[in-house]
Amino acid sequence: MNRQVTLRVNGVTQQHSVEPRLLLVYYLREVLGLTGTHVGCDTSQCGACTVLLEGQAVKSCTILAVQADGAEITTIEGLARDGKLHPLQTGFWEEHGLQCGFCTPGMIMAACQLLERIPDPSEAQIRHGLAGNLCRCTGYHNIVRAVQHAARKLLETKQR
């Protein structure tokens, strides 16, 4: 028995009739075609599916689309504004914070929330803040650098 859901995704209102068992991540990927959000595991460990729900980083493989009814969602596709990359996106690029790129969207979304909460995080705080996101390529070294890079840029912008 399908249910009607209305969400605001990357600033656009979406209304669809979905199966109650449809996971939010498959709603984003297969109903909306936002394939930047990835699925890397089936037990909520890897964090590749991380999106922002009402500004909070959530694993979209662990929430049903119907549970997100009425929510505001931001995915990796909605991060750049007016064709300008988010400082986290440039940070990951500048610091070589990605290799295969599969974990990257989730990693960036998790880092978004981290910098929201702690604008000037220590290395330990970055590592702790990303503990729910796994990367098998980078050893996290340049991911830490990327987040530090973004934190610097965001602070500079604020101070201006």
Partner: peptide, 20 residues
Amino acid sequence: KRREDPRLITGTGNYVEDVT
């Protein structure tokens, strides 16, 4: 810096799961 990154950091890469 890598030329493959712009698509991967914007969620516009094309992995097998994205092919339907």
